[in-house]
Amino acid sequence: MPYSSPIRDRNSDTNNRQVIIVLIIFLTVISLIIYGLFAVINNVVNFIPISVEQRIGSLVVPSFERKNLANITNQQLNQLLDNLENKLPENSLVKRDYEIIYVPENVVNAIALPGNKIVIYEGLLKEVESENELMMILGHEIGHFANRDHLRSIGHLILIRIVINYFLGGSEILQSGADLSNLIVNARYSQNQEQKADLFGINLLNKYYDHVNGATDFFQRLNEEAKNNLNIAFLSSHPLPEKRVRRLEKLIKENNYSIKDKTALNITIER
């Protein structure tokens, strides 16, 4: 019968425990550092000047503008946006010269870009059935500008890339403006960010129409389509519509918002 030294076994167990403890300490420290960096980004973006944000936008906006058509659809959308902007508070960070970039592609999505640009796809316009629905979407996107969520998302995604490159190798963070555009298109806001943008949007909708009818219609429709397993880009970067509708209905009830007749959407969709 082979002899096994109990002293050697005890030493081996002790060494294994020490390695595990060191590994846990190391991972904890790294996690705290990354969490701290995310917190720094969340606070720093509040101090980024609009001029710097516009320079960031200059890297990504051209790739969307190349798809844009200066047609009647683009003009009508920007007129609606201008009307909505008139209800924004004066002398505030959110009061900017926003512009819609209309992209004639069958994609159901809307995107807030650095530089005061809002991308609206043709696919989203085809899903909207009233002016009120569209204004709620635009108000939501302006809410992201007000809270500077688009800059936070860019900062978070770049930080994640830095961490991945550090541990897995590589040096390229962003190779081009197109790479940054892909980051923005695929960015997903946190639940808290989306809730704040929805709150901003519904308050602006109420200020514009003096009621909030249509605030949930678009999201209810997406919810039905999501149940049919349809691939909708809007759902990959926004919260699940069912929860969103419940939250908006709760806001409507809590604020005692009025429900009146909706306004027909008078937009001519051209390619």
Rank of each mutant, 00 (worst) to 15 (best):
E105Y: 13
I24A: 14
P104C: 01
A178F: 14
S58P: 04
G143Q: 06
G170W: 09
V52G: 00
H211S: 11
L32D: 05
K262H: 03
L69G: 05
M135R: 03
V212Y: 01
N71Y: 08
N71E: 07
L151W: 03
L265H: 10
N71D: 15
S51K: 12
K196V: 03
K67P: 04
N109S: 07
G139Y: 05
D261K: 13
P104I: 04
V94Y: 05
N15R: 15
I34K: 00
T263Y: 10
F38A: 01
Y35I: 04
K95S: 12
L204C: 05
N192F: 10
L23S: 15
N83S: 12
N74R: 10
E254Q: 12
I56G: 02
E224H: 15
Y102Q: 10
L183G: 03
L138Y: 07
I160G: 01
I48P: 00
T268K: 13
V103G: 04
I101N: 03
N229T: 10
G169T: 06
D217F: 11
F145M: 12
G214H: 07
Y209M: 04
S58Y: 10
V60S: 03
L235P: 07
I267K: 00
S130G: 08
H144G: 06
P239Q: 06
P62E: 10
D149P: 00
I184Q: 00
E99D: 07
N231D: 13
R96N: 11
N16A: 15
H150M: 13
I252N: 05
R244Y: 08
E172C: 06
S31P: 00
R17G: 11
I50S: 14
L205Q: 08
A110E: 07
A264V: 14
Y98D: 02
N46K: 12
V212H: 03
A264M: 12
L37H: 02
I33V: 15
A112M: 12
I202D: 05
I252T: 02
T263R: 08
E141N: 06
N186H: 11
L174Q: 02
I120R: 02
Y3H: 13
G123Q: 10
V61G: 07
Y208M: 09
L174A: 13
V163Y: 01
E131N: 06
V163L: 03
P239K: 06
A110M: 09
V45G: 03
N42Y: 01
A70V: 15
